[in-house]
C-alpha cells in the first residue's frame, strides 16, 4: 500500500474512534440530563428529602456537597501548593525526591473506596473525628492532594526559565521570585486544574460513604453558628452528599418517586460538574489574558 493510503486509513480509524467516544459521551450526558431535567425545580433543589412520601428534595445534600467541597479545598490548596512548590523548585533530584514522587503517583491511583476505608480507619476511628464533614474532607484531601501537587508543579514548570532568571538576576530571593513572578504566571494553569479537581471531589461518593457518612442530621438553615450541632456550617456533623444520596436512593430508596429523585439529582450533579469544567476553561483563559496582555 502507498504511504498516503495508509495515512488516510489510519486517520479515518482515529477519527471514527474519536467520533464514537464523543457520541457515547454526548448520548450519556444528554440521557442523564433529559431524564432528570423535568424533575428539577426550585423546590426540589431546596427542600429536604422524604423517606416514605413523594415530593422530597435534595436541598441539604446539595448544600453538603458544596460545603464539603469548600472544606476540602481549604485543606487541599495550601498543602498542594506547598508540596508542589517544594517538588518543583526546592527538591534536589535524588532518592528522596523520587520516593516522594512515587508515593504521590501511587496515592493518586488508589481506588476511592480504599481511600474511604483508610479514612474510616484513620480519621473516623483513630483520630475520633467520627462520621463528619471533616473526616470526609480529609479523605477527599488524600484523594485530591496528588492531583493538586501535580497541577502546581506543572504550573510552575510552565513559567519560562527566562522569567525566573530575570527576577533572580535582580537580587530577588528565590522565595520572592516564586511568589511574585512564578506563581502569578502559573495561576491560569493552577486555577484550571483546581476547578477540574473540584469537579472530581463534587462527584465523589465511594470515599465518603464511610467518612462523611450516609445521613444528615436535621439541619436548621437559620442557625449559622458553626459550633452548634444542628447548624449546617458545623464541620463535625455527619453529612450525606449529593453523590452519596444518589447511590443510596438508587439502592434502597423507598419513596414512591425515588427513581425520579435519583434522576433529578443525577442531572443536577452532572450539570454542576459540567459547569465546573466550562468555568475552569473560561476563567483560565481570562486570567491568562489578564496576566499577559495589555488592558
Amino acid at each position: 500500500m502507498k504511504p498516503r493510503t495508509v495515512d488516510k486509513i489510519a486517520t479515518g480509524i482515529i477519527m471514527a474512534v474519536a467520533g464514537f467516544i464523543i457520541l457515547l459521551l454526548a448520548g450519556f450526558l444528554s440521557y442523564i440530563i433529559i431524564r432528570g431535567f423535568g424533575h428539577i425545580s426550585f423546590d426540589f433543589l431546596t427542600s429536604p428529602p422524604q423517606t416514605f412520601r413523594e415530593g422530597g428534595g435534595i436541598g441539604p445534600q446539595l448544600f453538603n456537597s458544596l460545603f464539603l467541597l469548600v472544606l476540602t479545598m481549604i485543606i487541599t490548596i495550601p498543602l498542594g501548593l506547598g508540596a508542589g512548590i517544594y517538588m518543583s523548585e526546592y527538591a534536589k533530584p535524588g532518592r528522596l525526591t523520587d520516593f516522594i514522587r512515587l508515593t504521590v503517583e501511587v496515592l493518586s491511583s488508589f481506588p476511592s473506596i480504599v481511600v474511604g476505608l483508610f479514612g474510616l480507619l484513620v480519621f473516623v476511628n483513630v483520630f475520633e473525628f467520627g462520621f463528619s464533614l471533616f473526616s470526609g474532607a480529609l479523605a477527599l484531601t488524600v484523594f485530591n492532594l496528588p492531583l493538586m501537587v501535580r497541577i502546581t508543579e506543572q504550573g510552575l514548570r510552565s513559567v519560562p526559565r527566562e522569567q525566573k532568571e530575570a527576577s533572580l538576576a535582580l537580587g530577588i530571593s528565590k522565595w520572592k521570585t516564586i511568589t511574585s513572578v512564578m506563581l502569578p504566571m502559573a495561576v491560569p494553569v493552577i486555577l484550571t486544574g483546581t476547578i477540574l479537581a473540584s469537579g472530581r471531589v463534587f462527584g465523589e461518593a465511594a470515599a465518603l460513604l464511610f467518612t462523611a457518612g450516609m445521613s444528615s442530621p436535621r439541619l436548621d438553615f437559620t442557625n449559622w453558628n458553626p459550633l452548634d450541632p444542628t447548624s449546617p456550617l458545623n464541620p463535625f456533623r455527619p453529612a450525606e452528599t449529593l453523590a452519596v444520596h444518589i447511590w443510596k436512593i438508587n439502592s434502597e430508596g423507598v419513596a414512591p418517586d425515588a427513581r425520579e429523585i435519583a434522576a433529578g439529582a443525577s442531572a443536577v450533579l452532572v450539570m454542576t460538574v459540567l459547569s465546573f469544567n466550562l468555568i475552569a476553561r473560561w476563567l483560565g483563559r481570562m486570567v491568562y489574558r489578564k496576566f499577559t496582555s495589555s488592558r
Binding site: P160, E165, A166, S167, T292, S293
Partner: peptide, 9 residues
C-alpha cells in the same frame, strides 16, 4: 541583561 528580551508580563 539577557539575550532574549524578557520583560515580565
Amino acid at each position: 541583561v539577557f539575550q532574549q528580551p524578557n520583560p515580565f508580563p
